[in-house]
């Protein structure tokens, strides 16, 4: 084998992988919002279609019911660098699955206490709203965004600040 032959083959330049799109917001804060399909997703949808502005940082994940959200989902989101997590469900007694929102509320209230003990207090928000409450959606996201802005970015975010 001619050793020069091997070296003469042109090295292929690796195509650089397309970088993950950074959040398009100026402060790059990211808020993960779990919205239930029947109410709060509708509220967010209505807020959009009626052109009510709310912070761009909120990224919506639609779930069948707020009772579907396991505390582990919230922990994983925070572990992977989400600055805040919102869980929103239907109003009391209006849950499509009868008690899903009540179960979610109990879970999140206790998880909030747990998060306080590990230094991530205030980064979880739970709200109840109906599909027509676009205004409430806007108010909730705005006030939560303000709170996260005060707290600053999540210390666990990849690549530092």
């Amino acid at each position: 084998m001619n050793p020069s032959k091997a070296s003469s083959t042109p090295k292929r330049k690796r195509k650089s992988k397309p970088k993950a799109k950074a959040a398009s917001t100026p402060d790059k804060l990211r808020i993960v919002s779990f919205c239930c399909h029947y109410c709060s997703y509708g509220a967010a949808d209505l807020a959009g279609s009626s052109k009510m502005p709310y912070p761009l940082n909120v990224e919506i994940i639609r779930v069948p019911c707020s009772g579907r959200v396991d505390p582990l989902h919230v922990l994983h989101a925070l572990e992977n660098g989400a600055d805040g997590v919102m869980v929103t469900g239907c109003l009391k007694d209006q849950c499509h699955f009868v008690t899903g929102n009540l179960h979610a509320e109990k879970r999140m209230m206790k998880l909030q206490k747990w998060l306080e003990t590990i230094g991530l207090g205030g980064r979880l928000e739970f709200q109840l709203m109906s599909a027509g409450m676009a205004k409430r959606w806007v108010e909730t996201t705005k006030s939560f965004y303000d709170r996260i802005k005060e707290l600053g970015p999540n210390p666990l975010r990849k690549g530092g600040k």
Partner: peptide
């Protein structure tokens, strides 16, 4: 809550994993 639900597994729980990382930063 911690000592009831995670009495034996706190040191290996998801919560403690996050706490350690928060503390490091």
């Amino acid at each position: 809550i911690t000592s009831t639900f995670a009495k034996y597994t706190y040191a290996s729980s998801e919560l403690d994993k996050i706490r350690k990382r928060v503390k490091q930063k």
